[in-house]
Simulated assay, not measured.
Amino acid sequence: MGKLFTPRTLAAAGVAASSLLLSGCLLTPGAFTSELTLSKGGAFTFTYDGEIAAMGLSDLARMGSNKEFAAECYDDDFEETECTAAETAEQKAEWEAEQAKDKAEKEQFVQMMGGLDPADPESAQKLADSLSKQAGFRSVSHKGNGVYDVDFAVSGQMTHGFVFPMVEKMPTMSPFVVAIPRGDGSIRIEAPGFGGNDSMVDPSLAMMMGMASKQAGGDAPKAVLPDGTFTIRTDGRILANNTDDGPAEAGGMQVLRWEVTSGSKIAPTALIALD
């Protein structure tokens, strides 16, 4: 008789998925429309209207956790068989080790989320309340499972770097958009949250979440995938950009536009002189 798979296989998937969440993006874009307007002299306006997902706020609490241990063994014909004492002991030891690791992962997650506990049913609303207090967030509503509808708009002078999103008490994990002024009067814009393999949601994460949900006895957290547009409008000089078609003219402004999907391989970038 052989053991083809056991509960620890699914538990390990939960731990691996939570590890990816902790090491990758905690905030990801969903369906959205975003625009950055840059004017000569340095005036700018940035807007983001759409979804932001805080990965795993509610469902991560269940992933990789079995409340009760139960050994399972299968033979080469995928038929369930009775486990030997040695097999049961081995599985229990591995299950306990995975439980301890999962607990440590969740504690780390809470710290990275500024003290928001994914096991706390009020965490999602706490994050919405925190965002609502920040300048620029005109409205924030929780849709469920850590997905928020956000209406953000801010205007100012590009005298210093700009990053979106930034959340009070949380580290900036792969921001959606970054604008950095240079000493020569140009502005470099990068949108790592809108493209590139390192910033987008790995499809394998959704698969591992699904495996973990079977073990956890619930529905898996659904990975929210990017689906939107990012537009830059400017009356400055476009020195470089990585759009497919280059700038277009509209209303006396030059317009750069990127379609953003889960398959976007390159993060939008542009370099614009505002002198």
Rank of each mutant, 00 (worst) to 15 (best):
residue 39 S to T: 06
residue 39 S to K: 11
residue 39 S to I: 02
residue 39 S to R: 11
residue 39 S to F: 01
residue 40 K to C: 12
residue 40 K to L: 12
residue 40 K to G: 07
residue 40 K to A: 07
residue 40 K to T: 12
residue 40 K to R: 11
residue 40 K to S: 14
residue 40 K to F: 04
residue 41 G to Q: 00
residue 41 G to S: 01
residue 42 G to F: 06
residue 42 G to K: 05
residue 43 A to E: 12
residue 43 A to W: 12
residue 43 A to L: 14
residue 43 A to K: 15
residue 44 F to V: 09
residue 44 F to T: 03
residue 44 F to S: 08
residue 44 F to G: 03
residue 44 F to L: 08
residue 45 T to A: 13
residue 45 T to C: 10
residue 45 T to V: 13
residue 45 T to W: 05
residue 46 F to L: 10
residue 47 T to N: 13
residue 47 T to Q: 14
residue 47 T to D: 12
residue 47 T to R: 15
residue 47 T to K: 15
residue 47 T to L: 11
residue 48 Y to E: 08
residue 48 Y to C: 07
residue 48 Y to A: 06
residue 48 Y to P: 07
residue 48 Y to F: 15
residue 48 Y to S: 11
residue 48 Y to G: 08
residue 49 D to S: 10
residue 49 D to I: 10
residue 49 D to R: 06
residue 50 G to N: 01
residue 50 G to D: 00
residue 50 G to E: 02
residue 51 E to L: 09
residue 51 E to Q: 15
residue 51 E to M: 02
residue 52 I to T: 00
residue 52 I to H: 00
residue 52 I to W: 01
residue 52 I to C: 00
residue 53 A to E: 09
residue 53 A to H: 15
residue 53 A to Q: 13
residue 54 A to W: 01
residue 55 M to H: 05
residue 55 M to Y: 03
residue 55 M to D: 03
residue 56 G to Y: 00
residue 56 G to C: 00
residue 56 G to D: 04
residue 57 L to I: 14
residue 57 L to G: 07
residue 57 L to E: 03
residue 57 L to R: 00
residue 57 L to V: 14
residue 58 S to P: 04
residue 58 S to V: 08
residue 58 S to G: 09
residue 58 S to L: 13
residue 58 S to K: 10
residue 58 S to T: 15
residue 59 D to Y: 10
residue 59 D to V: 04
residue 59 D to I: 05
residue 59 D to Q: 12
residue 60 L to A: 05
residue 60 L to G: 06
residue 60 L to N: 01
residue 60 L to M: 08
residue 60 L to E: 02
residue 61 A to F: 05
residue 61 A to E: 03
residue 61 A to T: 03
residue 61 A to K: 01
residue 61 A to I: 05
residue 61 A to N: 02
residue 61 A to M: 03
residue 62 R to A: 13
residue 62 R to S: 06
residue 62 R to F: 03
residue 62 R to D: 09
residue 62 R to L: 13
residue 62 R to C: 04
residue 63 M to A: 03
residue 63 M to P: 02
residue 63 M to S: 04
residue 63 M to C: 04
residue 63 M to V: 07
residue 63 M to D: 08
residue 63 M to T: 05
residue 64 G to P: 04
residue 64 G to M: 03
residue 64 G to N: 02
residue 64 G to R: 06
residue 65 S to P: 04
residue 65 S to Y: 08
residue 65 S to I: 14
residue 65 S to G: 04
residue 66 N to L: 14
residue 66 N to A: 14
residue 67 K to Q: 13
residue 67 K to D: 13
residue 67 K to G: 12
residue 67 K to A: 11
residue 67 K to C: 09
residue 67 K to T: 10
residue 67 K to M: 11
residue 68 E to T: 14
residue 68 E to G: 10
residue 68 E to M: 11
residue 68 E to D: 15
residue 68 E to P: 09
residue 69 F to H: 14
residue 69 F to N: 09
residue 70 A to S: 15
residue 70 A to M: 14
residue 71 A to D: 05
residue 71 A to R: 01
residue 71 A to H: 04
residue 72 E to Y: 05
residue 72 E to V: 09
residue 72 E to W: 07
